[in-house]
Design a protein around this nucleic acid. Sequence first.
DNA 1: AAGAGCTGTTCCGCGTCATGGAACAAACTT
DNA 2: AAGTTTGTTCCATGACGCGGAACAGCTCTT
Lengths: 236, 236
Amino acid sequence: MALLDCFSPGGGSFRLTELARGAGLSKTTAFRLTGELVRLGLLERDGDTYRLGGRLFELGSLVPRRSSLRETAVPYLQDLFEATRETVHLGIRDDHDVVYVERIHGHGAVQLPSRIGGRLPLTCTGVGKALLAFSEGELVDEVLAAPLRRLTSYSIDDPVRLRTVIEQVQASGIAYEEQEAADGVSCIAAPVFAGRGIAVAAISLAVPRGRFRPAQLAPAVRTAALGLSRALREGL
Amino acid sequence: MALLDCFSPGGGSFRLTELARGAGLSKTTAFRLTGELVRLGLLERDGDTYRLGGRLFELGSLVPRRSSLRETAVPYLQDLFEATRETVHLGIRDDHDVVYVERIHGHGAVQLPSRIGGRLPLTCTGVGKALLAFSEGELVDEVLAAPLRRLTSYSIDDPVRLRTVIEQVQASGIAYEEQEAADGVSCIAAPVFAGRGIAVAAISLAVPRGRFRPAQLAPAVRTAALGLSRALREGL
DNA sequence: AAGAGCTGTTCCGCGTCATGGAACAAACTT
DNA sequence: AAGTTTGTTCCATGACGCGGAACAGCTCTT
């Protein structure tokens, strides 16, 4: 795992020595372990560089919560994309982060820090705020107690201000985010419920700041989120 | 890996004893190893049952070939879905199997054996035939030499017949498949090229047999495949 | 009610197998 | 041509993973 974690931020490829250093192993053991990982399909070797292996992709696609959610969500994300032609996200919460499960975009999509399987702080993203606002008990307090991470100069780092934002989300059922995750792009999100009151996922639209029209986008996002919520309830 | 492989066919959840048996380990070591895997996030424990962990999803999403292909392909798959409203597949080859990388479908989608990250024999699927027809040198011979697996009663198990089918695909640039992977559903596919002549992926449409109109679907599939091919070339 | 068959969990002594330093060859840079 | 990388092999040492045995909690059976 120490070796595989070297790839965690953004994939890519590494040489043996880099992996050994990154994992804190001696070159000898790194050599033997990478050989083993290649044999298992978890790593692939191309000349003298290593990258993550296809086996990981297959195993990762089998993770239950993620893959079943994704499967039933796709049609609703699809509808939302067709109605708005903007980048659609589906995310879930893990600890204090949002993990993106699906992302649908058209040809000229804006560059975003979100990536399927990627993590971002709950507090900097529309999906994160929607998840946080409808999370169990003391999570909001926990998150507000920790120092708030920032991704841009617009990211909210004041716990007091963030709390009122969260309360607005709870009242309206819609979360906004304006350039807090990436410069020049705003975001509108809605929570997805499976049972009572706590969100199991959230859907968002990421829109270039120039054409951000919340009044037109909000109903579409809500509709998608409600449709998915209903589908998840019926699926059970 | 022996433990993780227990989940390989279709995910789900298992108890400790099942995992020990499935992996060929003593209950004691299975206990210790599952504990370790849970600690690493590769497994999740819920009461007395285990399932694959979120970490695997994240690592799997970082696998380079898969994720970059997927990222640039999504808009084209999107277009294809909107034009046809049928289930869209994107697959690559691994050994003698096709591995599905993306799948887009609408609300009333047909039940299919294909799943993202799932494997099916090259010879039973549209995507597989397209990949096989434009693969390197001796792969066709290799595949035809091995006994041909069957998924339905329509699956081709005669090497001679399959060879002529492959040659038709090579000539036309379009692969057909009729109920060879699942009863009641047919398929039309086109190869995606990155450089010269060998396919790096393939795009397919899966259509209920009742409304399978190849003449109307073929141009759409080819257009999507050509568009993606161009995007991959320019991306490099 | 009390046993029989499960489950997951802990303990522990044996023996294996992973470890990392040292030495090596090849391919770079200087 | 010397020097510093790289990946690779060898090997003695000892830590640590191994599985059998024993235990505790549970559900059924009788």
